[in-house]
Design a protein around this nucleic acid. Structure first.
Lengths: 407, 407
DNA sequence: GTAATATGTTTACACATTAAACAAATTATT
DNA sequence: AATAATTTGTTTAATGTGTAAACATATTAC
């Protein structure tokens, strides 16, 4: 039950109904294509006349295109299939990580074009921007276009999406860097979007065409990697907060006297379950103390740890089980707080899900408040789905399909 | 940017625009009354013609009434003032607490009628229902009506608003009690709403006529009492979650090895800052171990502790400061997670806010991730505003003013 | 070739916002 | 006291929606 904000509301004008239905039609074509006008009329429980008018408008704006005629097995005129017109342009998605930066090129509805490429991440902001400029232009020329619809960047740290400032990215050693401002000079006239890793993963779940995240399905995305990023989806919308920093469940404590975290505080969830924390427990020393520049040089990764665990290294398995328990304890807090329909988990450690699931589940049950909460559905997002890159792309492509602001 | 749910959306029909504007007019009359048609036209940036039509419809439905003519100092026809028509019925709000139950009667827009009354809370469900029936009928007959618009009940524990079941209320020793089902037999034909204390407080903030909680102002309400109730407002809407149990920040841990909590787990925030926890620290023993039936018999309350602290009892002041620190540490987690515009705090301990504010602030700064988060605005809700009772009333009166579901 | 059937378009209508003209009520001015 | 100016609230006509029914078009089955 939403309250109408008496200081900032949107009145319904003559065109409001049309705007609403237009966006619904666009969304339905996106999620159901190929789809005919008659199909849309049935899906929306309206008559074909209305759909014709709406679709013709979308056709004129070249947002939608007509495709081949379908073939029915029953008697009757063949339907004309409709598609989102993706021939318009391309979108660039960038996943910046401490070691390397990954790049994906898609058409304007997020369908991948070519291969994902990666290059070393520069730690000096100016160099970073220059290398991005070079790489993006190279990728665009390979696709055969000069410009793109927009660039979405996912950053491993705290960012303010609105101002475009990287507030704090300990992994790169950045504090209050006006990244978008710098990039706008590099890519003049191109829209650039910035988002935090965890929230971007959540975005990718919202806007994936398959899309089981919407409406009354509140959900949480937890990305476990060098850090712990969390994105929360409420009412089909990403929770952003006043300063665009909402979702930092990574720094709720398990024990306020626990190990020191990269954020400066003690005992954060992240300090227990980040890849470095798990590796530290395995090696019995503090790997996290290294300087950011040296991260790339660490040869032994969490994947190696998982391989060893599978190979029979009981110490490695113990380290994973320990991480699993802490993961579950923290998830319990998230579940108690948000009561989501789904919790999505991404990150390298999910490769070992079969080894750790029971430990995670047990820890969740231990600290959730009801039986139902303890049974909250958990879904693993495999790395091959590239949730961060998909989230970066969604930053560019999603706005066209968003619900109109009403009332 | 909200996604349209392709499996469950609401198409705009011929009447949608009117429905939207009707609700806006209703909301504006509620928040701005007394207000004229011309005022509404200016507020909505539309012409008076449209307002006339909308208002006449509301007048016919007797949702709105015309009042006295206003007097302008400028030349021109005097405006006819409009009001929400509250002469329709009455709403009952009930705040159930471990010791006593409080009851408020209001008109249909939530304006208090008569005095707040209280009576002992019965712990046996059937007795509880019977006593409620008696008290409500008594109150209604005193106001001179036979029935009411609805009854809103606020419960100190975990409830499922939809099914109307009290899932777990340790303070009363209730588990899975189908309260609404039982009450519907007692009050045939009357709408009965059930909500958790913390969330009800949040509701009262959303729907208070003053209403600084709306739209882009996400906010959190923390009610510190026998337990810790938390309500989260996102997008002008209360966060409910899949099982209607969202917002249980009271059970995020400060230390997973900390003192035992009433929920069974260890080291929950609640176990550090509930009134009983604070009293326990003062007395150096475990007050929380008492049976629920005995709670009413505890003579020494948190208010007494505050009085002693003000009187110079340094042990009492230490206990308060300790609670303040834990309060702040937990608030930091809430702020990191939600990044709200405002945090509202209610409960007995707020009477000592002048004594504890600096400790709370310091603890918040210690664990929040950015300067901005550390400065998140905190507002004290004094007990005289009866946030729980107002929330109970809002359960009944708010639906009439809610935004229509669109797209 | 004809009937049946489904798709997509057109037409007429109902209902909403909206702009402009109008009636009503009040104050200031002559 | 009469008139002009001004504001409120209503009416009228215009315009843009959704909606129902009729219609044209295309295809299959007989």
């Amino acid at each position: 039950m939403r309250k109408i904000n008496p200081k900032d509301f949107t009145r319904a004008t003559r065109g409001t109904s049309r705007e609403i239905n237009r966006q619904i039609v666009l969304t339905l074509i996106r999620t159901h294509q190929p789809v005919s006008r008659a199909d849309l009329a049935r899906l929306m429980e309206t008559n074909r006349a209305n759909i014709t008018l709406l679709v013709n408008e979308l056709l004129e704006e070249k947002l939608v295109r007509e495709g081949a005629r379908g073939s029915l097995r029953v008697p009757g005129r063949k339907p004309t299939f409709l598609y989102i017109n993706s021939a318009k342009g391309v979108a660039i998605g960038l996943d910046v990580r401490a070691s390397r930066t990954y790049m994906m090129v898609t058409d304007s509805i997020g369908k991948q074009i070519g291969e994902i490429v990666s290059f070393a991440t520069r730690f000096e902001p100016a160099e970073f921007v220059a290398s991005l400029g070079w790489q993006v232009r190279k990728a665009l020329s390979e696709v055969g276009v000069k410009s793109c619809d927009g660039i979405g960047i996912v950053f491993p740290g705290m960012v303010d999406r609105e101002s475009g400032v990287v507030i704090n990215a300990p992994k790169l050693g950045w504090k209050y860097v006006p990244l978008i401002e710098m990039l706008e000079k590099e890519f003049e006239g191109t829209e650039i979007h910035l988002e935090n890793s965890g929230r971007a993963c959540a975005l990718s779940q919202i806007w994936s065409t398959r899309g089981d995240v919407h409406g009354r399905n509140d959900s949480v995305f937890v990305s476990v990697s060098d850090g712990v990023g969390v994105g929360v989806v409420i009412n089909g919308e990403l929770l952003r907060g006043k300063h665009n920093t909402a979702g930092e469940f990574g720094h709720i404590p398990l024990s306020i006297d626990g190990p020191q975290c990269s954020c400066g505080a003690h005992g954060c969830w992240e300090a227990y379950i980040s890849n470095l924390a798990t590796l530290s427990r395995y090696f019995g020393r503090d790997v996290s103390r290294r300087q950011p520049e040296a991260i790339e040089a660490i040869e032994f990764t969490i994947e190696d740890l998982i391989t060893r665990a599978r190979g029979g290294d009981s110490k490695a398995l113990t380290a994973l089980h320990s991480a699993a328990r802490y993961l579950g304890l923290g998830l319990a807090s998230v579940i108690n707080a948000i009561d989501p329909s789904f919790v999505y988990i991404g990150g390298e450690i999910t490769e070992a899900w079969d080894l750790i699931e029971s430990q995670v589940r047990e820890a969740i049950k231990e600290r959730t408040l009801t039986r139902e909460l303890g049974r909250t559905s958990i879904r693993i997002v495999p790395a091959v789905e590239h949730p961060r890159l998909r989230g970066a792309i969604a930053l560019v492509t999603a706005p066209a399909f968003a619900a109109p602001k009403v009332a």
